[in-house]
């Protein structure tokens, strides 16, 4: 916590957590479906950013590099050197998958909202019959 980089990273993660809270509030309390839709996109984006922050690392000198080997290596030691500076590629791969999955759900949700409007003439959720949330 003492060094400035950790402090800054803490600020970053805490802002992300705040975003999770704000967007979840938007999903559950705003009456308009479009607003819920927007809040939902922000919510899942924030989770993804959180994962990326998880995959970040620090190196002894300089700045970490991307998880790409820049040119075809000559022998194994180059690979080890790359592993010494590269960031974690796995969260990136997971987030890539998660972003696409999110996009898929939003596309369908958008279609549903259009249909909802055609039926009810409004995008505001009707008061729930069974006292359910959402």
């Amino acid at each position: 916590m003492s060094d400035p980089v950790s402090l800054l990273l803490t600020v970053l993660v805490l802002s992300l957590v705040t975003n999770i809270g704000i967007s979840l509030y938007g999903v559950f309390t705003r009456p308009s479906l479009v607003k819920k839709f927007i809040s939902l996109t922000i919510f899942s984006d924030t989770l993804n950013s959180f994962a990326i922050a998880l995959g970040f690392r620090r190196v002894a000198r300089g700045y970490p590099s991307i998880a790409v080997i820049p040119s075809i290596p000559e022998d194994v030691s180059e690979l080890r050197a790359a592993a010494g500076t590269a960031v974690d590629p796995l969260p990136q791969a997971l987030v890539l998958t998660a972003i696409v999955i999110g996009l898929a759900v939003y596309m369908f949700l958008a279609g549903l909202i259009v249909m909802y409007y055609r039926h009810y003439g409004t995008t505001h959720v009707r008061p729930a019959e069974g006292g359910s949330i959402g």
Partner: peptide, 15 residues
């Protein structure tokens, strides 16, 4: 920008 600075160009490209 956050993704970019955290060294995730793939994510920037898809996000």
């Amino acid at each position: 920008l956050i993704y970019y600075v955290l060294m995730a160009p793939d994510i920037v490209l898809v996000y």
